[in-house]
Design a protein around this nucleic acid. Sequence first.
DNA 1: TATAAAGTTTAGTCCCAGCTAAAACTCTCA
DNA 2: TGAGAGTTTTAGCTGGGACTAAACTTTATA
Lengths: 218, 218
Amino acid sequence: MASVAVENYLKSMWELGPADVATQELAQHLAVAPASATRMLQRLSERGLVAHTPYRGASLTTTGERKALAVVRRHRLLETFLARTLKLGRDQLHDEAERLEHALSPALEAAIDDYLGNPQRDPHGHPIPGPQGELPPEGDVALGDWPLDRPAKVSQVPDRDVEKLAWLEAQGLVPGRELRLVARDPFDGGVTVKLDGKLLQVAASVADEVRVSGEGAT
Amino acid sequence: MASVAVENYLKSMWELGPADVATQELAQHLAVAPASATRMLQRLSERGLVAHTPYRGASLTTTGERKALAVVRRHRLLETFLARTLKLGRDQLHDEAERLEHALSPALEAAIDDYLGNPQRDPHGHPIPGPQGELPPEGDVALGDWPLDRPAKVSQVPDRDVEKLAWLEAQGLVPGRELRLVARDPFDGGVTVKLDGKLLQVAASVADEVRVSGEGAT
DNA sequence: TATAAAGTTTAGTCCCAGCTAAAACTCTCA
DNA sequence: TGAGAGTTTTAGCTGGGACTAAACTTTATA
């Protein structure tokens, strides 16, 4: 089994990918020193999990991506499981799943998947990779990029940023919620949306992390 | 937070205690070399978690025991939670909980305890320490030591030994089951019990690990 | 009670994964 | 185009936790 550290590096690589990831970016994401990231990239490279070009960045190999997706799958299954059973709030899920994802055996993973009825999305709306890492094509788009006046449904909200998440939750902006975009600020990228007849200002930084899709899709 | 290794050493010490534990015994229990156990005992001793007398063995300090019980609590809550939600068999619980117990945050522990309604026993009948490590006094006794002909109720079965557990389960010897001891082999310590009118031979090695109590108790 | 056997600790290594400081590389822009 | 800024890598250390081999205690036995 891969160590916790290795799993975290692979997961970060996947989250920052698929383009080449800079050492510094990776290091920041993991809160380690750049030199530590370099060293680990060299190890992962030896093990065939990443392709690392010195001074140029690194990306996951197919094998590496498969392993990364296995971690993501466990993470998202756990979030869904904890939400379903314990009714944890969306803002608590991420950190808990982050800890547990490295300790989930294949048998338990399967049992949870089964219990949940093979869910396709976690409570943040993120797609759950299949047992072999299959991911459905994403049919959604950032809230800020949605055309004006066309009905949309929230498909994904961020999972890491507890601040934004709490705000979104308070406004009822959760996956499944229907809305309409009524205005876009051309300068800062913020948007105004209409929810149940009420208007709501959404800052650009938040709008960037909320994804929406048309009625039919997702 | 104590590392996984430290938590495992403390838990083993607790399981093997409360008398002084020999280095070799501890090492075997954890599947490490005796020298490794010595080194760790020295560390734990420095940190005030065990009292180690060179060449004589070691035992938990009060602080060490508190930490050990916290791990045991997480373990048993997890077993109960997994059994309740996922309907895992008694024989799968131990290994899964063993992995997860080190990754359970205080918040999640509390949420699980709450969800389960503050259970007092895990699915093997083992008592679950309270949040501060409180353990109820045990009113039970090994099956082999129960007097003949007096009605008894199974209170605890082993959790580690999958073989024995599977056998016990197959015979219906699970916590809560009522039985009567009808004979005891004076030589090997095996016993014969009566379950629902049927007679059943129980080998000494198994009888040693099953605990029973009178009707009222437990 | 001496000595052998059994158990324990010390000494010396190894690997992992982090760190800082210094060196090497790349890129930009004057 | 070449100098400095920024990024990345190398070098060298640290600590955790494992291992083996050798030295040392304790216990058991003759």
